[in-house]
Each structure stands twice: as structure tokens, then as C-alpha cells.
Computed example of a mutant assay.
Amino acid sequence: MKNLINNQKSLMISSLNENKLPEISYAPFVMIDKDIYVYLSKAANHYYNLANDKNCSVMIIEDEKDSKTIFARKRVSFECEATKLENADGAIYNKFDEVHDSSMMMVLKTLDFD
């Protein structure tokens, strides 16, 4: 499981909209210790869904091109409670820079991402 988590850069995230209907999308993530951090755009529905209902589910799944069979891709799912970080720790940003390319993260920091 640790190898899968360390080799993927995005996860699937399922959240509930204002009508309590499920919506799924994906987001870049990093994991530090046992905490999962996602970088969300205010243009994404799940940004607002999670602001209204902190309960969500995430799945990290092996890329199709790396799987031996499409029906048995390695994957792990977690039921989560989302918390918006107003002032994220520098270690979190450093981890995003390390995993997702610091120049790309610099661009995202100037946009509407949280």
C-alpha cells in the first residue's frame, strides 16, 4: 500500500453536494505521516462540497498502464473528514513542491487554489 501511495500523484475524491448527491473528481495530493493533503481549486465542485460537508471518501488507484489486468488494479480507499487549512505548515508546501514540481506549485499558488 505504501508503494502505491508513494507512486501516485493524484487521488479520486468523492464528496456530497448541497443536495446530498455524491460527486467524484480527482485532485493532486501528498501524504505526510497518516494525513492526506489535497490541493483544491475554488473552481472545483468538491471545494464547496467539502466546505459544506466535511465527510468524503478518497481512493488512490494504480495507473491503468501499470496494471497487469484492468480488473485488478492496486487501490486503497479511505473515509475522511476534510479540514481546510487556513495557514498550511511549510512542510506541507515543501512536500507538494517535491512531489508535483515546484515551478507548477508556484503557478498554482498564484491562482485560486487552496
Rank of each mutant, 00 (worst) to 15 (best):
residue 85 L to I: 12
residue 77 S to R: 12
residue 60 I to A: 05
residue 2 K to N: 14
residue 73 R to A: 02
residue 2 K to D: 15
residue 67 S to N: 01
residue 49 N to S: 10
residue 68 K to A: 02
residue 108 L to T: 04
residue 29 F to K: 06
residue 39 Y to Q: 12
residue 15 S to D: 08
residue 62 E to V: 04
residue 42 K to F: 07
residue 52 N to K: 15
residue 77 S to P: 15
residue 111 L to W: 12
residue 30 V to W: 09
residue 1 M to T: 03
residue 1 M to N: 07
residue 45 N to D: 15
residue 73 R to V: 00
residue 47 Y to F: 14
residue 51 A to T: 13
residue 67 S to R: 00
residue 57 S to M: 09
residue 12 M to W: 07
residue 28 P to Y: 02
residue 6 N to G: 02
residue 96 F to S: 00
residue 57 S to W: 01
residue 85 L to M: 10
residue 25 S to G: 15
residue 3 N to E: 07
residue 112 D to S: 08
residue 64 E to S: 06
residue 89 D to M: 01
residue 21 L to M: 01
residue 28 P to L: 04
residue 95 K to F: 04
residue 51 A to M: 15
residue 110 T to G: 13
residue 33 D to V: 06
residue 17 N to I: 04
residue 100 H to I: 03
residue 94 N to M: 03
residue 19 N to F: 06
residue 82 A to I: 02
residue 22 P to Y: 01
residue 50 L to F: 09
residue 84 K to A: 12
residue 26 Y to A: 11
residue 31 M to E: 11
residue 31 M to L: 11
residue 37 Y to S: 14
residue 34 K to I: 04
residue 56 C to T: 06
residue 68 K to T: 00
residue 99 V to I: 09
residue 80 C to V: 04
residue 56 C to G: 15
residue 8 Q to L: 08
residue 15 S to Q: 05
residue 81 E to T: 09
residue 9 K to S: 09
residue 82 A to L: 10
residue 11 L to I: 07
residue 105 M to W: 00
residue 104 M to R: 02
residue 73 R to I: 00
residue 91 A to F: 02
residue 4 L to E: 06
residue 111 L to H: 12
residue 9 K to P: 14
residue 95 K to G: 13
residue 14 S to R: 00
residue 76 V to T: 08
residue 45 N to G: 15
residue 43 A to G: 13
residue 43 A to W: 01
residue 66 D to I: 00
residue 41 S to Q: 11
residue 77 S to I: 09
residue 108 L to P: 15
residue 62 E to T: 05
residue 111 L to R: 11
residue 75 R to C: 12
residue 5 I to R: 01
residue 43 A to T: 08
residue 34 K to A: 10
residue 7 N to E: 13
residue 70 I to A: 07
residue 88 A to Y: 05
residue 96 F to N: 01
residue 78 F to M: 07
residue 94 N to E: 07
residue 5 I to L: 03
residue 24 I to V: 12
residue 104 M to F: 05
residue 101 D to Y: 05
residue 19 N to M: 08
residue 37 Y to I: 05
residue 4 L to C: 07
residue 85 L to H: 07
residue 6 N to R: 00
residue 71 F to V: 02
residue 71 F to W: 05
residue 83 T to E: 14
residue 40 L to A: 13
residue 11 L to K: 14
